[in-house]
């Protein structure tokens, strides 16, 4: 809470502030809460003067009003997307990773989530001066892999160093630290020049640490993370990618045969595999853009000399959850293309 200071209004002289302080009116909030008549007798200011001070404080400290035209112009001039530089993915995404919104990358273990994220990190700094922050919660970021991808693409050692300098990595091991990190970025304590993209790989790794707690503290943390992320992505014009995981569970459908007369009833059991995005109900509607990654299974691991895996990316937007577009990407020594 802000302290009541001289700069708030010309009427507030040192002696008045001192009197107020002696009467335990220290913060702006105290001043606003106190009865105007009492303040008037304390400060020996007239009642209209006290009310004037109050008006001034309200005006100064309220949220700003922006008119529609300014908003529109702002939206025209600021960047909307961070291009992924993967042609087919950019096409489906309609330009790239959206700025000012939260994007989720989701999939089963080993399907290429981290690989895609590392590629996005490379691509977003490769052709620009921007830098990217990679928040690593399980040690999946591999600088060796980054170097190998760049090397396989024939990038010179000098450019390689330049690109890798712009990829910042921080290791975070619990939710409290993640929140502190985000707050530090928000409050400008932690400054990263030309930050264009923040990738958190992966969020469930931190959230699952609170799985099974009775007190639902995890939900509080998640809420704070979401609020801070939204603020940062809007204020600093960054893209925000959260990696989520998928789990599978199986439904057993027992379909009873029609004819019950037959002596031995054979029950047909069909199993339905269902996939579930982690992080609970609250999170489900948080990301504005959802990329679900699936590994295409139709390749032969024994005769796969190119060591290439095809991954399918299914894109859904929160504006129309029923519309899903997809594209297929190639994952090999050259990275994700």
């Amino acid at each position: 809470m802000n302290a009541l200071e001289r700069k708030e209004h010309v009427y507030l002289t040192e002696s008045i502030l001192k009197t107020l302080k002696q009467n335990r009116i220290i913060t702006l909030f105290d001043f606003l809460q106190e009865e105007a008549e009492k303040l008037s007798t304390l400060t020996k200011l007239t009642l209209p003067q006290v009310l004037e001070i109050r008006q001034e404080i309200f005006k100064k400290h309220s949220a700003h009003l922006i008119n529609g035209a300014t908003l529109f112009i702002n939206s025209l001039t600021c960047k909307k997307y961070i291009p992924t530089h993967i042609t087919s993915l950019d096409e489906v995404l309609g330009g790239g990773i959206p700025v000012g919104l939260i994007t989720e990358v989701c999939g089963l273990a080993g399907c290429g989530k981290s690989q895609l994220c590392m590629q996005l990190a490379i691509n977003s700094v490769k052709e620009s001066d921007d830098s990217v922050l990679y928040v690593d919660t399980k040690g999946d970021f591999s600088a060796v892999r980054i170097q190998k991808i760049l090397d396989a693409n024939g990038v010179s050692y000098k450019d390689m160093a330049l690109i890798m300098l712009k990829i910042r990595v921080v290791h975070i091991w619990n939710m409290e630290d993640l929140i502190t990190l985000l707050e530090n970025i928000k409050n400008g304590i932690l400054k990263i020049e030309k930050l264009s993209l923040i990738i958190v790989d992966s969020l469930p790794c931190l959230m699952l640490q609170h799985f099974g707690d009775e007190n639902k503290i995890g939900l509080t943390f998640l809420n704070r993370v979401v609020n801070n992320s939204r603020y940062i992505s809007k204020e600093f014009q960054t893209g925000f990618i959260y990696v989520n995981i998928q789990t599978r569970w199986i439904d057993q459908d027992v379909s009873e045969p029609e004819e019950i007369e037959s002596s031995c009833t054979v029950k047909d059991i069909t199993y339905n595999e269902k996939r579930n995005r982690c992080l609970g109900k609250y999170w489900q509607t948080i990301p504005a853009l959802l990329l679900v990654i699936e590994k295409c299974s139709d390749y032969d691991i024994e005769n796969n000399y190119e060591n290439c895996v095809m991954i399918k990316v299914i894109v859904t937007r929160h504006t129309n959850p029923l519309l899903a577009e997809n594209c297929t990407l190639k994952l090999n020594a050259l990275g994700v293309t």
Binding site: F141, M164, R168, V169
Partner: peptide
């Protein structure tokens, strides 16, 4: 200083 932020070159 709570968070050590590396760049990819240092990590490499």
């Amino acid at each position: 200083s709570d968070f050590k932020i590396y760049n990819a070159t240092e990590l490499w």
